[in-house]
Amino acid sequence: MANTKVAIIAANGSLFDAYKVFNVATAAAASDAEVGIFFTFEGLNLIHKEGHKSLPLPEGKEHFQEGFEKTNVPSIEELVGIAQEMNIKLIACQMTMDVMSLEKGDFVEGIEVGGAASFIDYAKDANMSLTF
């Protein structure tokens, strides 16, 4: 998987969405792929400094809370830490940040801020492009 490039768009902000994004991203990075994630709209919750620690379960799915505890799934905070450690590129969408009055300091350490064109440039030679 070395020389494999994975480009991910994270556009949703529930706990389920966070697991989908970070599980695939960290598994890819652990398989030696280069990974970049573009966080846009509700997806920004996944890297918000405080928000990512208490993401909501989707409406009507609150009963899955128990299942998460029982299966010993890592916390999103832990997965974000792993993503940073593995040098996964985290790109926050500038336009959404402007709309939501968010600044770079509102997010976890080490993110980049970019527009759609930055992501397209990153993704143009990706072997896999995923959207969550």
């Binding site: 599980n23 598994a27 010993n72 890592p74 593995m86």
Partner: peptide, 13 residues
């Protein structure tokens, strides 16, 4: 043991 996906792979790496 006791770890859920994707942690085993991350630890093995």
């Amino acid at each position: 043991t006791g770890l859920a996906c994707p942690m085993p792979i991350v630890k093995i790496k």
